[in-house]
Write a protein that binds this DNA or RNA. Structure first.
Lengths: 151, 151
DNA sequence: AGTGAAATGCCCGCCGT
DNA sequence: ACGGCGGGCATTTCACT
């Protein structure tokens, strides 16, 4: 599914500030407020926009530690099994199966390094996990929409 | 900075659906609409909430290919230089400096693998980049926006 | 365009110090 | 007594038909 250029500009405007009024966005892209609303409704219906959220500063909420964990699974572990195993952890912000040696990459937010260590131990103890390899985030440089909890 | 339990519940509600009315959220957490607004305003002022945005499905927007790229820099490259170098690419969704062998991890969205290849070549050609190592995302398993509940 | 709902600003009252 | 915080009301702006 390919999107209109107008749709793209609307999505971009909403991604920057989802609280802008339809009239305001319309003035920018050259449409009336109702026309913008119709397009946004269509974007919601087709799934291009899946919802509205807040950008949260994890550090301000006490989630000071961020990490990427590569997971190496035992053979014959389905992506669904990995998903089911990981979604029980509130600390897991994102997870994807990937190419390369590892089977999945998991993005984790924890309160501090000690908290992260506990979570990692529990994940490493999951029956489908063979071994893990983690890197800790030192400082977030860039965070745009679509990439987990932005700073 | 530590947040109130009430604030946390409000943030959680907004993270799930930022379009809920203050009255609705207030009914859930036991406050009036103006009281909720005051706390949200305070969260915005203190930086705990950094803005309102839309959840976007990259695939629906035509960004079918996602990848994680580890960047190995030449010595003495500052995080700011990496940031400046990367933020010119609209395909870069997130970037962080990390521990371990690589200097930074970059999350990239591209229209297809060919597009990703072009972007990767350009990034690899940046003066501060020594070499790169990429993994392509096969399927996104989990994607949460906003932070989960504390453990 | 018109209607209705939600956000916003204001004032008051409560409870803490 | 004073300051922070929540409740209720009035106004206005925006969403929706």
């Amino acid at each position: 599914m390919s999107l209109n250029d107008l749709d793209e500009r609307i999505v971009h405007a909403l991604a920057e500030d989802a609280r802008r009024s339809y009239a305001d966005i319309g003035a920018e892209v050259g449409l009336s407020a109702p026309a913008v609303k119709r397009r946004v409704d269509r974007l919601l219906a087709t799934g291009a926009i899946t919802g509205f959220t807040v950008r949260v500063d994890p550090a301000a909420l006490g989630w000071e530690t961020e990490a990427f964990v590569e997971i190496y699974c035992r053979h014959k572990t389905s992506p669904e099994a990995i998903k089911r195993g990981l979604e029980r952890y509130p600390e897991v912000a994102a997870a994807s199966t990937v190419t390369g040696e590892a089977d999945a990459v998991v993005q984790i937010y924890a309160e501090d390094v000690r908290h992260f260590e506990r979570v990692l131990e529990r994940i490493a103890g999951e029956p489908f996990v063979e071994r893990t390899k983690s890197v800790l985030v030192l400082s977030p440089l860039l965070r745009r929409y679509g990439a987990g909890a932005p700073a």
